[in-house]
């Protein structure tokens, strides 16, 4: 699905990613863990096409294409979805309106006609149920006056509507109560299929218990310093990130 090679990036002259290598095959779910400030959100944003980060070295291929050469909207139309760590509010624009515009943008990109209004509403009605939200909420302004948990549910709702090939979820599980966590993990599991891949950026093992990943990677100071199977989450939970310094020394030497 996606192959990241020696990715270096900086913001305002400050290096943040310092040589990230990552392969995510079709149909796999990979988790990225790591302490705050290690560059997880930066990596997610760069993959989604945010322009304030400058890529100084390296390459990313996605479905055989040079991802870094595509604009953010083009990547989205090619099936890249980012679940934001901090979803923004867009006052006065209803969630449904944005979603319909997003779906139609994809269709236009593929040369298909726009989605029928009735089909759209039926689809929205079905998927909103999967995340435990009401249509009333979907009609409200994008994330307008939503609680933290509602914003995260809304990201999952959008993901289910847009059916991406590569979903990158940046701490979608942070700050959720048990019920909301279940909604989020069910949503992710619903999306899982041989032609879709998922990247879960998370701090918590509890999400990974609901959505068992194929691989777990630890990002530390802008590099992947350790990778392993699902059991790595237990190790990290037991030991924390304290031993990473030595790992990193080992990795770079």
């Amino acid at each position: 699905m996606i192959s990241i090679k020696n990715l270096h990036a900086e913001v305002e002259g400050k290096p943040i990613l310092r040589g990230v290598d990552l392969e995510i095959p079709d149909g796999e779910v990979h988790a990225i863990m790591g302490p705050n400030g290690s560059g997880k959100s930066t990596l997610a944003s760069i993959l989604a096409g945010r322009e304030e980060y400058e890529v100084t070295q390296g390459s990313v291929t996605y479905k055989g294409q040079e991802l870094l050469e595509m604009d953010a909207d083009e990547r989205a139309c090619e099936g890249v979805f980012l679940g934001f760590q901090y979803p923004v509010e867009i006052p006065g624009v209803s969630n449904l309106y944005l979603l319909r515009a997003a779906l139609n943008a994809r269709r236009k990109y593929r040369g298909e006609p726009e989605i029928d209004a009735v089909d759209f509403m039926q689809m929205a009605q079905e998927k909103i149920g999967h995340v435990g939200m009401s249509m009333e909420m979907a009609k409200r302004g994008v994330n307008e006056d939503f609680s933290g948990g509602e914003k995260k549910r809304n990201e999952i709702f959008q993901m289910l509507m847009l059916e991406p090939n590569l979903a990158i979820l940046d701490e979608t599980d942070s700050g959720l109560d048990i019920d909301a966590l279940k909604v989020v993990s069910d949503g992710i599991n619903r999306l899982r299929s041989p032609e879709r891949s998922v990247v879960l950026v998370t701090h918590y093992k509890r999400l990974l218990e609901h959505c068992v990943p194929d691989r777990i990677h630890v990002l530390y100071q802008g590099q992947i310093v350790r990778s392993g199977g699902p059991e790595l989450a237990d190790t990290l939970e037991a030991e924390g990130y304290a031993n990473l310094e030595t790992d990193e020394a080992a990795a770079t030497s």
């Binding site: 989205a76 867009i90 943008a105």
Partner: peptide, 30 residues
Amino acid sequence: IGEDQMFYCQQRGLSEEDAVSLIVNGFCKD
């Protein structure tokens, strides 16, 4: 018009132009 709002819309697939008009129309809704 925030970079964050623009990026959010573009990440969902909207062109820059469509993102601006969406945000502006929301602003004018009242």
